[in-house]
Amino acid sequence: MKTHLFIASLLLLVLLGACSSGPVMTQATGLAYEVIVVMDQKDWKGEAGEIIKADLESPVPGLPQSEPSLKITYAQPKDFNGLLKLVRNILIVKINPSTYTKVSLSYENNPWAKGQVVLTLKAPDAQSIVEYLTANKNKLANFFVEAEMNRAIAQLEKNYSSVVMEHLKKDFDVMLNAPENMTYYKDTTNFFWASNNANTGRTDLVVYTFPYTDPDTFTADYLVAKRDSVLKANLPGAFPGSYMATETLGGVHYEPITVNGKYCGVLRGLWKMRGDMMGGPFVSHIRLDEKNNRVVVAEGFVFAPETSKRNFIRRIEAALYTLRLPGEFDKPVSDPLDVPEQKK
């Protein structure tokens, strides 16, 4: 009898807990860097649809072959229901001259599923969308890319390589949340290398430091020269005399951004192995450690021949945003990346 009462009491507690917590929201579906576009078919097939597609499919910078920023699925408003409302990235386009006087963007998190973001574009006509997206290049793509990057950063906060974290903290006095499968490593003075050592989609991470003595340090030319000298000395190739170098033929891209409220240089381009046939994309975050008057470089690079490289390079790029210098260890992994406009 006591056993039956105990079970009945336990079931009652479970039911009360379920009632008090409310309904559980379904997890968003879909793959990273995929988006569903919802708009009238006539507009989708017209000039508004064309420029929206061009924006969302704009090429990912710094890759050896052209790859679109996002994969698009289209749906008419009348078909936008059921499972389609659970997709992680949704763009809803509303064109109505009697309702809207200008183009506006707004977004909402988790309206129908957990981990979802819905961006709404409103406009009086197709021409105003063309003018807006022409003046604001890659506005839509950048929004969803940054949303995906935030998701990856949040995941890295929960699951990361303890090997990388421990060695960087002990030997470099920095913190970085690398992907959990990065367990192969080499640690030398002022240089650390880690890799997932994968047969497909190999991804590597390097961290190195050097004294801050030159005001021209945060320029593409200086950083490429420094990169080549450091990696030549520390990452020899499989063949005698082979070594890693920056591919400068197609140019490299340097962009200043802000991370944790501080200046961060982003260097992006292609690497190649001189004396070998290997190569691929890389991205570097370069920051000034004011406390120790040194420059800290965290770089990810990918080797994935005969397959797309977009998701590989973006995953390691997300890890670079988690770099924390002395004095930042008690801060979150990273502030969320900026998104355009405002929430609804």
Rank of each mutant, 00 (worst) to 15 (best):
L5C: 08
L5D: 12
F6A: 12
L16D: 08
G17W: 08
C19D: 12
V24C: 14
A28I: 03
L31I: 07
I36A: 05
V38T: 01
M39N: 07
W44M: 15
G46N: 08
E50K: 12
E50F: 09
I51C: 02
I51S: 08
E57D: 04
G62W: 01
Y74F: 10
G82L: 07
V87C: 04
R88S: 12
P111I: 02
K122T: 11
P124F: 01
V130F: 01
L133G: 00
V145C: 10
V145F: 11
Q155N: 14
Y160W: 03
S161Q: 09
V163E: 15
K170H: 10
M175P: 00
M175E: 15
A178Y: 02
N181W: 09
T188I: 09
N190C: 04
W193C: 00
W193N: 00
N196E: 10
R202W: 10
L205D: 00
T209S: 12
Y212W: 13
Y212R: 08
T213E: 12
P215H: 05
D221G: 11
Y243I: 05
Y254I: 12
E255S: 11
Y263E: 14
V266L: 07
R268C: 15
G269D: 01
G269E: 02
L270C: 03
M273I: 13
G275I: 13
M277V: 13
P281G: 04
P281C: 06
H285P: 05
D289V: 06
D289A: 01
N292P: 04
E306C: 06
S308D: 14
S308H: 13
S308T: 15
K309N: 02
N311V: 04
A319E: 02
L323C: 00
K331N: 09
V333I: 15
S334P: 01
D335M: 05
L337Q: 09
V339W: 00
